[in-house]
């Protein structure tokens, strides 16, 4: 089992963003975000509601176009035709990106085909087991609880074995047990040299997982600290 589709160059940062700007009409969401996250790091992004956390994650994932600035994942540019960078990134956001009338397995089969995954069958069973969904594999998404849908969404995000994981409030809607599972997954993730950047509403969860905390405020990264250092508690006053 390969850990990643291509082994990343450790000298190049996993996520590198420079001068990211994004306006929504009269409101500036991001005013020049510079970011560099290394391999094996779990970075947690804090910030008030509307601080631009979701926008930043969507820009890093190549879903939203920045007005200005560049994004590189493992040294590969992420832009409209950045197929190679897209392969490296897994994304799970507020929406599950699942089709309600397909079963769990069918949803994953669809995404496996889109990503051109070889040995998809085994891989699908593997991620279903990882997310404790094996017994629900043939159930339609519509019939699953919100928490299960959220887990399936995680399974979808890691299906193609990305090296960079972007998660927007992954713990919301999950029960305590699932949050713990997710924490284990993230620890394994970082342990194998892969990178995750996530946002969260829960300071406890965020601080428990983080190797590094970033605070987004006024459209910029205003605080950047290694977890456990004194600044963290003060800077990361999350909502």
């Amino acid at each position: 089992m390969r850990a990643t589709s291509e082994s990343p160059d450790p000298a190049v940062p996993a996520i590198a963003a420079a001068g990211i700007r994004k306006d929504y009409g009269d409101r500036a969401a991001l005013r020049g975000v510079d970011l560099s996250i290394g391999w094996g790091e779990i970075a947690v992004l804090f910030g008030a509601n509307g601080a631009g956390k979701t926008t930043l994650l969507r820009i890093l994932a190549g879903l939203t176009r920045a007005d200005d600035g560049t994004v590189h994942l493992a040294g590969r540019p992420m832009h409209r035709r950045g197929g190679r960078a897209r392969r490296l990134v897994g994304f799970a956001g507020h929406q599950t990106l699942l089709y309600n009338d397909l079963t769990c397995r069918e949803n994953l089969e669809f995404y496996a085909k889109l990503y051109g995954i070889s040995g998809a069958k085994d891989r699908i069973e593997q991620v279903l087991a990882q997310m404790n969904l094996s017994d629900r594999a043939n159930r339609r998404v519509r019939t699953l609880s919100h928490g299960m849908q959220k887990r399936l969404s995680m399974a979808r995000a890691i299906l193609h074995q990305p090296v960079v994981l972007l998660l927007d409030e992954p713990e919301s809607g999950l029960d305590a047990e699932s949050v713990a599972t997710l924490g284990d997954l993230l620890r394994d993730w970082a342990g194998s040299g892969r990178t995750a950047l996530l946002t969260t509403h829960s300071a406890d969860v965020g601080l428990a997982w983080a190797d590094r905390t970033l605070t987004l405020s006024n459209g910029r990264i205003e605080a950047d600290a290694v977890a456990g250092s004194p600044i963290t508690a003060g800077a990361a006053a999350p909502q």
């Binding site: 190549g62 879903l63 197929g83 897209r86």
Partner: peptide, 19 residues
């Protein structure tokens, strides 16, 4: 509209297939 139900369009755009 079906594509937008759970943000499926984002799923298509995330994938390494061309537009």
């Amino acid at each position: 509209t079906r594509e937008l139900e759970n943000g499926g369009m984002d799923g298509l755009l995330l994938a390494p297939v061309s537009r």
